[in-house]
């Protein structure tokens, strides 16, 4: 939990200077926004899943992710934000989630839900493990709880992959989803600007760079899906010093710098419709704070 010079940050005030605080804030926005939006899409399967059992299980996953979003947004509140400006009155262009999580599901495309969940959960697993010994205590203190739940999500996704991959129809649908979603999954590892990710690693807030996480992620995904007879697109070793993959491997919109597909503003408008219609100016809290 320490950098070469042994730094450790108990809270926001201990971060040295504006740039350090901004780097941590950016990392938190990526975490929180990914979780919020992936969960928002998962909830579309409630009352629409293939069986009552899968309906209940997917709702569990969605609520876990919503809970994680809530937890990371609460850390962001320490940077002077509140839920209103973090979610409800934020400009949709200011959201920093990767475009994987904002993609809509086609009707009945359970294979998409399974593949997306798997690609996301492995990425999440890599990312969280690299945060376990974070020098920033508010992150470090929360990673354990999140990791426990993510382990279950991964198991769940794998059990569905195995079941679907065993049938011809299921296999084909999984491969279609994988081909479509893989470029979007790469957005999860795209750094935003050219300097933040290096600063985050240098400060020891996260142990490994996004590029390193991406390589581990790809190897795991390739191994496992390959064992089910699925074809994972190759990942060219990153030659670019800034950590980006080749633009030709990425979708047109990455999301990390606010560059979203049209699906996002549409989804955001649905999410905030009640808040807007009723002219609300605050978001209701009904649960106890974690801290």
């Amino acid at each position: 939990m320490a950098t070469a010079d042994g730094a450790s940050y108990a809270g926001v005030d201990d971060l040295d200077g504006e740039e350090a605080a901004e780097a941590v804030e950016r990392l938190l926005f990526r975490l929180a926004d990914d979780e919020l939006v992936v969960a928002e899409r998962y909830t579309e399967w409630q009352v629409r899943a293939p069986t009552l059992e899968s309906d209940i299980s997917l709702a569990n996953v969605a609520q876990d992710e919503l809970g994680h979003a809530r937890l990371w947004y609460q850390v962001l509140e320490r940077f002077g934000h509140d839920e209103t400006d973090l979610i409800w009155e934020r400009d949709p262009e200011d959201f920093r989630h990767g475009t994987l999580v904002e993609q809509p599901f086609a009707d009945g495309d359970w294979a998409d839900a399974v593949v997306r969940g798997y690609l996301y959960d492995v990425a999440e697993d890599e990312r969280l493990h690299a945060l376990e010994d974070s020098t920033f205590a508010p992150i470090r203190d929360r990673v354990g709880k999140v990791l426990d739940e993510e382990a279950y999500h991964l198991e769940y996704a794998e059990s569905w992959l195995e079941r679907l991959a065993g049938s011809e129809d299921g296999h084909e649908r999984l491969q279609d989803a994988l081909d479509r979603l893989y470029p979007y999954a790469l957005t999860l590892f795209e750094p935003g600007d050219g300097t933040t990710d290096a600063r985050i690693v240098e400060m020891g807030v996260r142990e490994r760079s996004l590029g390193a996480l991406r390589e581990s992620w790809h190897d795991r995904v390739d191994d496992y899906l390959g064992s089910l007879g699925l074809r994972v697109p190759p990942l060219e070793p990153s030659e670019r010093a800034d950590g980006h993959v080749s633009p030709t491997d990425l979708p047109d919109h990455v999301g990390r710098e606010g560059d979203h597909t049209d699906h996002w503003p549409a989804l955001f408008a649905e999410m905030t419709g009640t808040y807007e219609d009723l002219g609300r100016d605050h978001a209701t809290r009904i649960m106890d704070d974690d801290e």
């Binding site: 928002e40 909830t43 409630q46 009352v47 709702a59 649905e270 905030t272 808040y275 978001a283």
Partner: peptide, 28 residues
């Protein structure tokens, strides 16, 4: 279920998702 999405706060959203899930569980 549409009100999971249309909830005007994060915690209301969580509560609505849990409620819809409970009801499917009751059906089961």
């Amino acid at each position: 279920r549409p009100f999971i999405r249309q909830s005007p706060s994060l915690e209301r959203k969580l509560a609505f998702s849990a409620k819809v899930q409970d009801e499917i569980g009751h059906g089961q």
